[in-house]
Nucleic acid binder design. Structure first.
Lengths: 202, 202
DNA sequence: CATGTGACCATATTGTCAATTGGTCACTAT
DNA sequence: ATAGTGACCAATTGACAATATGGTCACATG
């Protein structure tokens, strides 16, 4: 069901591909991206490294794949909030909170994996863009539903509102800023959500 | 008049200190912070490097001094906006714009100096904190005057409003994010200013 | 006492070179 | 056609010695 990811090649649905990704999660998460070699992954599965390149164009492509998994996990988490039928304001607030929670969790529990996500954002990998695109869609939906439901103001062009909120969200989920706020991120998310909701008020 | 800066020592008001700073601006701006050595500065002035340490505790302290100058320049620029007696909304909007303009200008015209400011923020030097403190004072003043003048809402606790706005401003002036927005920063500043002003509306 | 320095040390930085690693390809086996 | 590999190359990295740099101090000079 998932679209072909960039940097991948060879048979799309293949056990070996999954094994490679599983081994990568294991090794990247344990020893870090830089410190694990393709040969390590090959050995762990019991293949020659050449064969790995039948499935991925590069080491970075493997990094992108597992980074995409992290982003998918977050996306799903956020999507359940979007879909739960509460008021738009309430969901907006919880999106802010969930984003902060997810970001901090990834950073503190899976530091090594976070480093990959960090690179993904800094170097603008496809997976990072996919995530922000998905996030933007959610925000758009929320704005639309909030306006339709009479919760939010309608004077401002919807896409400007959406842009603005995305910019605000950035300071919550952006990995480059994370290390500096960590401790206050949860409160910051609440504060920013409140500001955004005031700006959306009728 | 300025308070004693951290990392400085010896006679406070001294021609040599100014010469060192002038040479540092010259060299740091031209060859970068890392590539200029204390000996380079000493040679440029015609002193031994040991003497430089009568005025600064470390190379970093010199970096902080010239970084503080950059921050001062921006601070002054912003302060003239704060003091010009226009409406609070108008000044708020122009603060956002000026911050974006200054940040971009520093980055594109004086790239080498920007690198120092970057370090200052990343490593939380005193000069960076002074700047954000000054900025916060300006925002506080604007909020106060906007509320007193009946332009802004008064239900939200003033310090929460202030915190929120500081967080939003961060995504404009924060050097770590700059390289990724550069091209849209000016528009982003407008978009964010609009959002903030909507949140302040009665 | 203020201005100034050369000699000195510990730590960073750099240059060098061999070993490792990312990545390809021709080739085998089934 | 699919599954798989050893041999090979260019680029990167690691280790380590040589050098350069940040920083201190006792001392000199007027």
């Amino acid at each position: 069901m998932r679209t072909r990811q960039s940097g991948q090649r060879g048979p799309a649905d293949h056990e070996r591909r999954d094994q490679i990704i599983a081994a990568a999660i294991e090794h990247f998460g344990h020893y870090g991206y830089k410190k694990t070699t393709i040969a390590d992954l090959a050995d762990a599965i019991g293949l020659s490294k050449a064969y790995i390149y039948k499935f991925f164009e590069s080491k970075k492509a493997i990094g992108e794949a597992i980074c995409a998994l992290q982003h998918d996990r977050m996306r799903v988490d956020l999507q359940t909030i979007i879909d739960d039928g509460k008021s738009a304001s309430d969901r907006m607030r919880r999106i802010f909170h969930a984003l902060a929670r997810n970001t901090v969790a990834l950073f503190s529990h899976e530091r090594k994996l976070h480093d990959i996500v960090y690179s993904a954002v800094e170097e603008e990998w496809a997976s990072a863009k996919h995530f922000t695109d998905a996030l933007r869609d959610m925000v758009e939906q929320l704005i639309r539903e909030g306006r339709d439901g009479g919760e939010f103001e309608r004077k401002t062009p919807a896409d400007e509102t959406c842009n603005a909120i995305m910019l605000v969200l950035q300071s919550i989920y952006h990995p480059l800023l994370l290390e500096h706020h960590m401790d206050t991120l949860d409160d910051d998310a609440v504060t920013l959500a409140n500001l955004v909701l005031r700006s959306l008020a009728l």
